[in-house]
Nucleic acid binder design. Structure first.
Lengths: 334, 334
DNA sequence: CTGTTAGCGCTTTCAA
DNA sequence: TTGAAAGCGCTAACAG
């Protein structure tokens, strides 16, 4: 099961066998055929670890997910893993997943991964302001891409993002066209960059229409969405539509509306931003801005390979989003 | 950033430095202190790849998830990844995730992983009868554990399972005690072992109570559950309760009941088997048998380490399940 | 076209 | 208690 075995069997040098199997380099066709035949016969698979040591790279991409003690329930991560693992598999690479406490104050996971040579590049998610992870990677000039954007548009950071402006614009256009004039944004307190960007995009889009912005914030989960929506719905002049900045929040809004006895979409329209499967089977199915997380994750792998091999990337562009109209949006009642 | 650097800096041999850092072996306390201090100073992190090559093991655990072209939406896998990655991180190991086509007829992913020395053991999920993956691993005596059970109770297979009998029994006991006498099982056509086990457990538990079994089958997803339930609900003598063998199916049942104008739980009680977060926020929140997927995945890592190091495992026991009573179960109407 | 040599960074003998 | 030497399996550089 090693090159040496094949070499001995065929009376060749290990080098020649290696070359023949690599598929390039100078080897006679005859030798190549013999080697390949023998390799097939004994079912040779190269030792990836040895190859990595020699090549000085690991052909693996890292991903850190939050350590939530068995409670990880964010569809975002399964999408990221799905997309990244698929692309990595296509490239004969590994996706290495480790957990870290969500605070990321403890860089041990990242250091083991990065400095131990286990991976060639890292996919970062949920970056916050002054994220220590970022500095660590920049200091080492280690290849990485940041999902959902990095704070401050640092040119050294390769971002993987959607065009938040046009995504929010599409949602507001849809609602505005339906006749809504009071549209709230259900945002969150979470310190992630995309949260802020979405808020800005919302403010701009609302201002362009001469409407009044209303932004609610809470924890970035279902309960948070529920609480935010419940408070807004108590208001005398409650909004006729809500744009939720994440799927979990949107599902909380839906629950709040139901418990308040409001009909969705007639008493309240809801648009979510995301792509969770839960949105399709919610009651009613949720209108949403689809964010192609898996595709973005697949691209992340390509970008990392490019960064590793060429030290730069072909200017990554924002991914297109898509308004998927389902059953939580309609014209407001008078 | 290598042992050599530290060795040169301190005028020691690489061997000594290695020993000092390993924490065992014969090194004077003084030398050890000096080495550790210097290692800290330059921020030494051992090259994991070199260590792996030398040790002949990779300190990594593999997991193959279905390649669903960006559509992976099964909460099962995120739980598995979460639990396995966390335990692996605790042990300073990696979790390597790759995708493969769900048919698993193509063993390339597995062969690259296993024979390339990239991992020390593999976590298998969703095994089917005569699964080619199983034979491949058994042939090579490669450490692996099978999630959700392997067909046929092969003694060479380390299983990670719940006690299906007592899980189903708990669900049926709950429903029976509430007064239900017509309880259907919404199963699926999926060829996985746990599906069959659940059906058997259901038959037994129903028989013990002198009731008549009713088993419906369809695709193992939300739509499947919807279709199965819709058909049952058309029946003159429709069941008053349904036990869904997976969460996705249960959510489909809920949708069918709603569209049929039935009140859940009063017209129809539903119990699910699983642990998805979606169950907590369904309307109404779903009564379920909680299956501790993440804990099982964490144990999977321990079992693989044990198999690797000792060639055997401390007889793994079935994981306990728990009936979580929420709002989809109540006494039947007359 | 093929072989020899060297070395990736580490750990493990075996000697001193 | 320390060091020298060997080698994990592979690839790259340099000769022939």
């Amino acid at each position: 099961m090693s090159l040496r075995q094949i070499a001995q069997e065929l009376g060749l040098s290990v080098t020649t066998v290696s070359r023949a199997l690599a598929g390039y380099g100078d080897v006679s066709q005859q030798t190549r055929d013999r080697v390949v035949a023998e390799a097939d016969r004994i079912g040779y698979v190269p030792n990836e670890v040895a190859r990595r040591l020699q090549k000085g790279r690991s052909d693996a991409v890292g991903l850190v997910i939050p350590d939530s003690h068995g409670g990880l329930d964010d569809p975002f991560f399964i999408k990221v893993i799905d997309g990244a693992a698929r692309r990595a598999s296509e490239l004969d690479m590994d996706l290495v997943v480790v957990t870290a406490l969500p605070t990321h104050r403890d860089l041990r996971s990242q250091r083991r991964l990065v400095e131990g040579g286990r991976i060639d590049g890292l996919i970062l998610t949920r970056l916050v302001e002054d994220d220590p992870r970022l500095q660590h990677l920049l200091d080492r000039r280690f290849p990485f891409v940041a999902f959902s954007g990095a704070p401050g548009a640092d040119p050294r950071v390769t971002e993987l993002c959607i065009d938040e402006s046009s995504a929010v614009e599409a949602a507001l256009d849809h609602l505005h066209t339906l006749g809504h004039r009071s549209i709230a944004l259900l945002s969150s307190h979470a310190p992630f960059t995309f949260v802020k960007r979405r808020e800005e995009a919302y403010r701009d889009a609302i201002a362009r229409r001469g409407l009044r912005p209303r932004i609610a914030r809470g924890p970035m989960n279902e309960q948070g969405g529920y609480d935010e929506a419940a408070a807004l719905l108590l208001d005398q002049r409650r909004p006729t539509a809500m744009l939720a900045s994440t799927d979990a929040i949107a599902l909380g809004v839906l629950r709040a509306a139901r418990l308040a006895g409001l009909s969705v979409p007639h008493d309240l329209s809801i648009v979510s931003m995301g792509d969770s499967p839960g949105l399709r089977i919610s009651q009613p199915p949720m209108t949403a801005i689809r964010i192609p997380i898996a595709d973005m994750a697949a691209q992340a792998v390509d970008l990392i390979v490019s960064l590793r091999d060429y030290g730069q990337v072909p200017a990554p562009r924002a991914h297109a989003t898509e308004l998927v109209i389902r059953d939580t949006t309609a014209a407001p009642r008078h």
